[in-house]
Amino acid sequence: MNKSGINLYIGGLLVGVLLVVALIGMVWTPHDPLAMNFAARLAAPGAAHWLGTDEFGRDQLSRLMQGAATSVKISALTVIFAVVSGTVFGVTSGFLRGWVDRVIMAVNDVLLAFPGLLFALGLLAVIGATEYGIILSLGLIYMSSVVRVVRGTVLGLRTREFVEASAVMGNASLFTMWRHILPNCVAPLTVLATSICGWSILAESSLSFLGLGVAPPAPTWGNMLASSRGFLDQAVWLVVFPGLSISLSLLGINLLGDALRDLLDPRMRKRA
């Protein structure tokens, strides 16, 4: 098996496990993730609590499962928001050109002028650190990358014969964009959407770690790690498992992204 195949299998497996755990976590957990039990405070991993308990005696496995559900939900909604809005603006900008293109790209360039999470932090300061605030702010910053990629692809396509033929046949611009241009954007978008998925899981965990994510007591991997800082010397499992969950998810998404890039973009195959 070649390297892309190995990446695809390992990445697919890790992402599959993440999705299964998240889906189960949405409907069932071994214990109530919010139920406190001071008798079992900071209990080490064992038969009663497989991954131990936290400083309030809450079952860590249940909290990790619900944290996975939160991460996947935020990540999925961020990807949908970024890809849908970025595709609409990117296709419109690249296909129509003129003043529409200039306005869209000027706004997009402003979003790209802010480094990393900075714009998201600024927006969260204004709209408040809620689940939908995070999705909106992350979606907006990742949308700018989608706009650039889609616009670039469309610019390369708009002078091709099949697009001109569609115009000659009298098809409306909207029909040509939907029927002939959009399908050609699927490959680069798939690779980018995988990356956005990883970025948003990392960004959501980072914001939660900073206290700007989903508010406690609702568990997220980031806020679980943040609260474990006070118990580094007493309960190492509180540090290990949430971090491992984030890292394995990111590793799976990175490997899957690499494999998809190799499969969908043959030029990259040699470089990878």
């Binding site: 965990s205 980072s206 770690f209 790690l225 580094l232 984030i246 890292s247 990111l250 590793l251 990175n254």
Partner: peptide, 13 residues
């Protein structure tokens, strides 16, 4: 790939 899959805050901890 492993290093960039580890969030900096977890690595720090």
């Amino acid at each position: 790939t492993l290093l960039l899959s580890i969030p900096t805050f977890w690595m720090g901890m």
